[in-house]
Simulated scan of single mutants.
Amino acid sequence: MLVWERPEPPDRPVPAPLSRDLIVRTAVELADEAGLESVSLRKLAGALDVGPMRLYGYIDTKDELLDLMVDAVHAEIRPAGDGWREVLTSVAEATRRAVHRHEWFADLIGGRPQLGPNALARGEAVLAALGGVDVDIVMPVVTAVDAYVIGAVRREIAEWRAERATGLDKRQWQKTFGPYLERTFATGRFPALETVVRDGAHLDADETFRIGLGFLLDGIGAGIEAGRPESTRQQGDHPPG
Rank of each mutant, 00 (worst) to 15 (best):
L130G: 14
L55F: 09
H74R: 03
A119W: 01
T26L: 09
A119Q: 01
A27H: 12
D107C: 00
P79Y: 00
A98E: 02
A119F: 00
V145R: 06
V28W: 06
G132Q: 09
A128K: 03
G132D: 14
A80G: 00
G51K: 09
L127Q: 01
V14N: 07
V14E: 10
R42Y: 09
V145H: 02
P10C: 01
V126I: 14
V142I: 14
R85L: 05
D82L: 02
A34M: 09
V145F: 05
K62Q: 14
M69F: 02
P113C: 12
V87N: 04
H102R: 04
R54P: 03
R154K: 06
P117L: 04
R101I: 08
G51R: 12
E103P: 02
F105P: 10
V73Q: 02
L48F: 12
L55I: 06
V141A: 14
K62G: 08
A92Q: 07
Y148M: 05
L55T: 05
A144D: 05
L108T: 00
Q114H: 13
I23P: 03
A72E: 14
Y58H: 15
L127A: 11
V73N: 04
V50T: 12
I150H: 07
M139K: 09
D63K: 12
Y56N: 01
V149T: 13
G132A: 08
L120P: 05
E29R: 05
V141L: 15
R122G: 04
F105Q: 02
K43S: 13
D134R: 11
P113W: 10
